[in-house]
Simulated scan of single mutants.
Amino acid sequence: MDFKKFLPWIIGIGVIVLFGLWYINVTNGAVVVDQAVKKEWGNVETSYQRRNDLIGNLVNTVKGAADFEKSTLTAVIEARAKATSVNIDPTNITPEQFEQFSKAQSGVSSALSKLLVSVERYPELKANQNFLKLQDELASTENQILTARTRFNESVEAYNIYVLKNPRKLVLSDYKEKAVFKAVEGAEKPVEVKF
Score class of each variant (00 low, 15 high):
residue 31 V to A: 07
residue 150 T to E: 11
residue 120 E to C: 03
residue 2 D to E: 13
residue 16 I to Y: 01
residue 16 I to E: 01
residue 155 S to K: 11
residue 175 Y to E: 05
residue 112 L to S: 06
residue 175 Y to G: 05
residue 77 I to K: 01
residue 104 A to H: 09
residue 130 N to G: 11
residue 77 I to N: 02
residue 61 T to D: 10
residue 39 K to H: 06
residue 19 F to W: 14
residue 55 I to A: 08
residue 128 N to P: 13
residue 29 G to M: 06
residue 95 P to H: 05
residue 26 V to H: 08
residue 133 K to T: 15
residue 195 F to Y: 07
residue 46 T to L: 02
residue 114 K to H: 13
residue 137 E to I: 09
residue 171 V to P: 04
residue 10 I to G: 09
residue 187 A to F: 09
residue 183 A to K: 11
residue 87 N to K: 15
residue 79 A to P: 05
residue 88 I to E: 03
residue 37 V to F: 08
residue 131 F to M: 06
residue 158 A to E: 12
residue 192 E to T: 14
residue 77 I to T: 15
residue 65 A to D: 10
residue 125 L to Y: 11
residue 55 I to W: 05
residue 54 L to M: 09
residue 83 A to Y: 10
residue 29 G to A: 10
residue 118 S to P: 01
residue 32 V to C: 00
residue 49 Q to R: 13
residue 52 N to V: 00
residue 6 F to D: 07
residue 39 K to R: 11
residue 150 T to K: 14
residue 20 G to E: 03
residue 152 F to M: 01
residue 41 W to P: 02
residue 162 Y to A: 03
residue 139 A to C: 02
residue 4 K to G: 13
residue 31 V to I: 14
residue 17 V to W: 04
residue 167 P to N: 07
residue 111 A to S: 13
residue 18 L to N: 00
residue 75 A to I: 09
residue 25 N to K: 01
residue 154 E to Y: 03
residue 161 I to W: 00
residue 115 L to C: 10
residue 8 P to E: 08
residue 106 S to P: 01
residue 54 L to V: 06
residue 52 N to F: 12
residue 127 A to C: 08
residue 69 E to F: 00
residue 63 K to Q: 15
residue 180 V to F: 08
residue 33 V to I: 04
residue 11 I to F: 06
residue 57 N to V: 06
residue 150 T to R: 14
residue 78 E to N: 15
residue 72 T to K: 05
residue 64 G to D: 09
residue 18 L to V: 15
residue 60 N to S: 14
residue 115 L to Q: 09
residue 68 F to L: 09
residue 80 R to E: 09
residue 93 I to Y: 08
residue 100 Q to R: 12
residue 118 S to V: 11
residue 88 I to F: 08
residue 94 T to Q: 05
residue 48 Y to D: 00
residue 193 V to K: 15
residue 94 T to P: 12
residue 70 K to L: 05
residue 23 Y to M: 12
residue 183 A to Q: 14
residue 41 W to R: 04
residue 31 V to L: 07
residue 82 K to G: 03
residue 113 S to P: 05
residue 6 F to N: 09
residue 194 K to W: 05
residue 53 D to C: 02
residue 2 D to C: 04
residue 85 S to I: 05
residue 2 D to H: 00
residue 182 K to Y: 08
residue 69 E to N: 14
residue 173 S to Q: 14
residue 74 T to W: 01
residue 122 Y to W: 11
residue 57 N to I: 03
residue 165 K to A: 11
residue 180 V to W: 00
residue 49 Q to W: 04
residue 66 A to Q: 12
residue 192 E to F: 05
residue 15 V to A: 13
residue 148 A to N: 09
residue 21 L to F: 09
residue 71 S to P: 03
residue 105 Q to E: 15
residue 2 D to N: 15
residue 1 M to A: 10
residue 39 K to S: 15
residue 103 K to P: 01
residue 173 S to D: 10
residue 55 I to M: 12
residue 188 E to P: 04
